[in-house]
Write a protein that binds this DNA or RNA. Structure first.
Lengths: 337, 337
DNA sequence: CTGAAAGCGCTAACAC
DNA sequence: GTGTTAGCGCTTTCAG
């Protein structure tokens, strides 16, 4: 009767070589401390058995896993895949494995995901939202691991924060549009997360400064191109004199632009339109979509650097890091030659 | 001198309650086996300490982690976020945590990611590619965990497979286009993964059956809307009489359609065009993009069901499961009323 | 250069 | 209803 096959352990390798598991362990972390002929035999035995080191015992003894947790709102968002790419550049380099969770923009699911990740003894955590449940905050306090909140710059960060000022970014873009003479601007908002709200605040502030009315069309649905079409149709009903649209992201903006064009509206002559994030779709449109360039990959890189630095005892004088933004003035806002 | 704060263990809870850690352990898995007053005190102590169970010891003793690994080619691909969603519906329900890795369509990175995931003692693994390195195959054999390959239907699956016949799907769409009278069709291909190649095979087979020439424009770059524009421009140079385009995915197709329209070509009168996956962007275009509807979320669900079934000892007579496809004949191929 | 013993947190198996 | 013991795989420490 054959017992359930078990994955090879250091002991199995040791038995095959005829030495103790300590020697194998040493071979793995500092091969030069092992006699050359022993080393050769160990290498052969490891490949014969297909040995794969387990990081579980180390988690158990040191409560360090050489893994960091990353919580993203959704997997289908281009913005966060760029962030993830930035994080992995740094974390892989530093020998850390990255464990992802996603929470669909809901604080309760974030809490559950954090609990899951903590049960794997992660050494540090990156969060994409600054809005957390009370239990989340308590768990993080108890776990006593470094935390970096990204995207926003929360007033009261849990620990560290890396992001940009979304309110200021929105104001800058709206002002640039107003400089083109827009009078009736609508803000199209989907899924009211923190960033969407910050952009709305910036939009309202910019309009208020010029004493223009602020129209907002919003929905709790999550962003998509077709949703952009729906929202612009609704906006045109509510504000028939509409001459400009600022959108919470490029998906909504692209959908709105396509819908406007298929109604026969000329962009930018009849309606000016801008989005946020400067995704590839904006460059494929005709005219190209004006948008706010956000340093997503850099946010990921800096967040991972600070997190891993923090894990290794480094401290940072400034808890928040503002990576800024740039405006891309595509043909959807300004008339290009 | 205060020592480094340690996460609370069962023993800490036990000390606080004045009982043994076994009682706490029992409370966690079957509360009814614990006397009511004890239970109350335990609950209070756990919340006071902010206790979070560790799954690490269980990984060590049983080599089961109640976690499954999922390897996806990229995070930025809508198709795979739908798959991931389907997987999580099932795995979360069954109490499994899902660990993701991505490998950028490269077999070597897949190998590394698998090693990482195995070092966490995952109970099962879902792979999105059927092209693996030798060492990958050896590691999986040694690990002796269930594996489900998704998307394709490999001729020699490692274990189980859930997907669809991409060659047949491509043939069906190309035939539908040919039925509209197309004579000079080009296939636009990016990043030559297995599925892109299967679609090319279907494209060639359909054209060969009608004795029409097959033109292919391909690149190793990864898909994007702007790449679709580049590829269609190249295609028009190489095949000026081009009257139809089949694209390996909707991103390429949408980019091509937008580029064609900005050149003044009418869709579908001058050029017919179709993509694969039926993403939201296709519905936002005017005309709507014809595409192949692939059951991505269902693939994820069925893969997770079979994987978890397999982990729990179930066996499947048919190793591969074909979930089929449907054609969406948007206005980019057929002339709508 | 190599080995032996202890311990990380939890649960299965076996007392009481 | 509750407590005790042993052990999962590895590294740290201490001995050779």
């Amino acid at each position: 009767m054959l017992e359930k096959p078990r994955r090879p352990s250091l002991q199995d390798v040791a038995d095959l070589v005829g030495t103790s598991k300590m020697t194998i362990s040493r071979y793995l972390r500092s091969p030069e401390q092992v006699a050359a002929p022993t080393a050769t035999k160990i290498a052969a035995a490891m490949s014969e058995l297909g040995y794969i080191p387990s990081r579980v015992p180390e988690m158990l003894s040191n409560s360090r896993s050489r893994a960091i947790g990353v919580l993203l709102p959704s997997m289908s968002n281009q913005v966060f895949s760029a962030v993830a790419h930035g994080i992995e550049q740094v974390s892989t380099q530093a020998g850390y494995h990255t464990l992802y969770g996603h929470y669909g923009y809901e604080a309760e699911r974030e809490e559950q995901q954090i609990e899951q990740l903590l049960s794997f003894h992660i050494d540090g955590l990156i969060l994409s939202e600054s809005n957390h449940t009370a239990r989340t905050r308590q768990m993080l306090a108890t776990a006593a691991i470094p935390v970096v909140e990204i995207m926003d710059l929360p007033a009261q960060p849990i620990d560290l924060a890396v992001g940009l000022d979304h309110r200021a970014a929105a104001m800058a873009m709206v002002n640039a549009m107003l400089d083109q003479g827009c009078q009736h601007m609508v803000y199209l908002a989907a899924r009211m997360d923190t960033r969407t709200q910050l952009r709305e605040a910036g939009f309202r502030a910019a309009l208020a400064a010029r004493q223009l009315p602020a129209h907002v069309v919003q929905t709790s649905k999550s962003s998509s191109f077709t949703l952009g079409g729906e929202l612009i149709r609704q906006a045109l009903q509510e504000v028939p004199q509409l001459d400009s649209v600022f959108c919470t992201n490029d998906d909504i903006a692209a959908g709105a632009l396509l819908a406007l064009q298929s109604m026969g509206k000329r962009i930018p002559q009849d309606v000016r339109i801008a989005g946020v994030n400067h995704l590839d779709i904006g460059l494929a449109l005709q005219p190209q979509l004006a948008s706010i360039i956000t340093p997503r990959e850099a946010i990921g890189r800096h967040a991972a650097e600070r997190l891993i630095g923090s894990i290794n005892g480094q401290t940072y004088a400034e808890r928040t890091l503002d990576l800024g933004f740039t405006l891309f003035m595509g043909g959807s806002v300004i008339t290009l030659p």
